[in-house]
Design a protein around this nucleic acid. Structure first.
Lengths: 189, 189
DNA sequence: GTAGTTTAACTACGGCCGTAGTAATATCCA
DNA sequence: TGGATATTACTACGGCCGTAGTTAAACTAC
């Protein structure tokens, strides 16, 4: 089969989501933005739900790639090293990956109301959360589950504020120091 | 004048945003959900932009009320007290205020692309951020601006994960401990 | 009480959307 | 090679959306 087409559509959908939001993502808009003949997207993803699923699935891949280096347990038992890797991954999401970060938030909101999206989103999320617990446990956390959630939440909040919110753009150093602060607080408990 | 009408419309719009997302918020949908005669919303907020502005302005009021107790500097120089107040405010947003929290995220995304919304959102945001800096400074932070941003980001992330994301619902105690962890780490620097 | 002004009610229009049916084309395997 | 099958292209339809114009009602101030 030809995944070429599906990937192009998903990629274009991500861009549209980021630039125009949920109301800007339509079958026809994807066709036009991707330079495909009219009806192509409608044909590949027959319903709107199918289009969203396709897009979120692609997005999950991209995010997994971006955070892959952080999820390798080896060597991350040292807090400073963990902070460094986390900060760099976040930095990537704020710069190179800004587009997909915005699109992911759009789809996260939609997942609130669409079970088929929630399934994909949750599954993708656990691929970050589970390793985080393991790593924090190895780093000496006394409550790795809660701390894992906190680390993920802190990361999410930093990204959200930087990309969506009113917060000023943090520097890479801000991120590094921030994660380090949190880790210090958690591991000193 | 009669602000009754405007408030009803804004309140209904918030509910629609939370329940059906940006694509579910239309002039006609507000009319129907609010039990108003057709055309009423279209008449009060003549353009879509006006409707969004009206809604976000109302939302900013609600959020300001919810966080008012935390923003009182008095007595909050003690980290545990600050953590307690913050955790309680967050808890409110996750339970009673869940609807407006979701709606706020919808509008935050939209503010990315609409300058008129960004203006309102940023202004409302600074009403949290500025006091946070002051309070952290009083609590002994060596870098209150960065720490203020981190505290807000952490709060935002905990809310986002709980309401939108894949994270399990935190308990009030989780929130308390989480904020305490972060404060400990920041103030130990 | 009545003239003038604001607010509400209703209606209309052009446009885009989701969806699906069907025809054309390419691809694959025996 | 040639027939079966999957993919792509094109078109159509009903429906809802944003917007605005126009009329009717309510209110205000003199």
């Amino acid at each position: 089969m030809k995944p070429q087409r599906a990937e192009l559509v998903a990629e274009t959908a991500i861009t549209l989501l980021a630039e125009r939001g949920m109301r800007g993502l339509t079958h026809r808009a994807v066709d036009e933005a991707a330079g495909l003949p009219p009806g192509s997207t409608s044909n590949l993803a027959r319903t709107r739900s199918a289009l969203l699923e396709l897009t979120l699935a692609r997005l999950a891949e991209l995010e997994a790639d971006a955070f892959a280096p952080v999820l390798d347990v080896a060597g991350l038992t040292m807090p400073d090293m963990l902070a460094e890797m986390t900060a760099r991954a976040l930095w990537t999401q704020l710069t190179t990956g800004r587009r997909q970060t915005i699109a992911r938030y759009e789809l996260a909101m939609e997942a609130t109301r669409r079970p088929e999206l929630r399934k994909i989103y949750d599954e993708a999320g656990s691929r970050f959360r589970d390793p985080a617990v393991t790593i924090l446990s190895a780093a000496g956390s006394t409550d790795p589950v809660r701390h894992g959630r906190q680390l993920v939440a802190f990361s999410e909040g930093m990204m959200f504020d930087a990309v969506i919110g009113a917060g000023a753009e943090p520097t890479l150093d801000d991120l590094r120091l921030g994660v380090r602060d949190l880790l210090r607080g958690m591991l000193a408990g």
